[in-house]
Design a protein around this nucleic acid. Sequence first.
DNA 1: AAGTCGGGGCG
DNA 2: CGCCCAGACTT
Length: 342
Amino acid sequence: MCISRKILNWYAPKDRGLPWRKTKDPYAIWVSEIMLQQTQANTVIPYYERFMAAFPTAKDLAAAEEEALLKHWQGLGYYRRAKHLMAAAKIVAREGMPGDFEGLKALPGIGDYTAAAIASIAYGEAVAAVDGNLLRIYSRLHMVDGSIDKAAGKRRIVELANKDISRDRPGDFNQAMMDLGSKICTPTSPACGDCPLRGDCMAYHANCAEDYPRKSPKKKQKEEDVTVLLIDLDGRFLIEKRTGGLLASMWGFPMAEGHIRPEDVMKLLSEADFVAKKPEKVAEYRHVFSHRIWNVWVYYAPVEALFAAEGGRTWATKEALKNTYAVPSAFSPALEVIYGMD
DNA sequence: AAGTCGGGGCG
DNA sequence: CGCCCAGACTT
């Protein structure tokens, strides 16, 4: 029996109740696949439900305010995904949803994996959706010695999977591989005894499944000290729209490089023409990104004079911070300080 | 080919 | 703590 048949037989009774598996709407599949990029399914579920309720069609999304979209994306990370999704939705609202792999891949934010996932699930196109799960599974099936994060190793797996994929049920094949990867063929201590593909697996027969996939060594994150300022004008806090780089297009508090002293905070505020009272250090936390770490000091700095916020800055109330502005998790402990005030 | 871009879950 | 996750895009 071929791999395709075995995996489909295993999959049939185990279809999980993930919300995006209950639809064939290409737009809904699309939204879910974008959210699922580098993000675990359980994390995505509540975001997906809220998002589809707010933006049920590509036209709705195309007509939405970017701020509303970002607010829905808050906490999910990789915020460029939201920006690309919106740009693509405008194209789709104008020209219609692409009907195949190549057309999908031409949209911003849709790469090889996502185009294959949508095309196979929504259109029945026989293209393998090669994600981390499938790379891991195939690196074990064939004991692929090239690193899967290098082009050569990945290319080989793409070819192998595209030979194996079911022509009748490509979408189920791809989703079955995801499930196999998350339940059986896991990164550490895979449950080979329960695997429907163990008869075809070179690594299983050589008893070395845990040695795959091969990966090139990753470098350590850079660690940086930063200071976050909670500038309070009568219950409103100064926030700024971040431009470019990390957390771009999200709202954050004014920041300074390094761990600065209260006198330095005072000086910064004066230079910005604030009439400030004595700043006070109110919190300290560590935030870990993929390849960067912030060691954050938080200052509370009440000011007196009103200066009109301009150029991507605004004064936000506690309620607006909670309900209106998209503030990423990197600032959550700072937000908690504000929420804890009377 | 290497860097950049989040955040949470889990051992 | 470090690793991993339904990756894509820029340089």
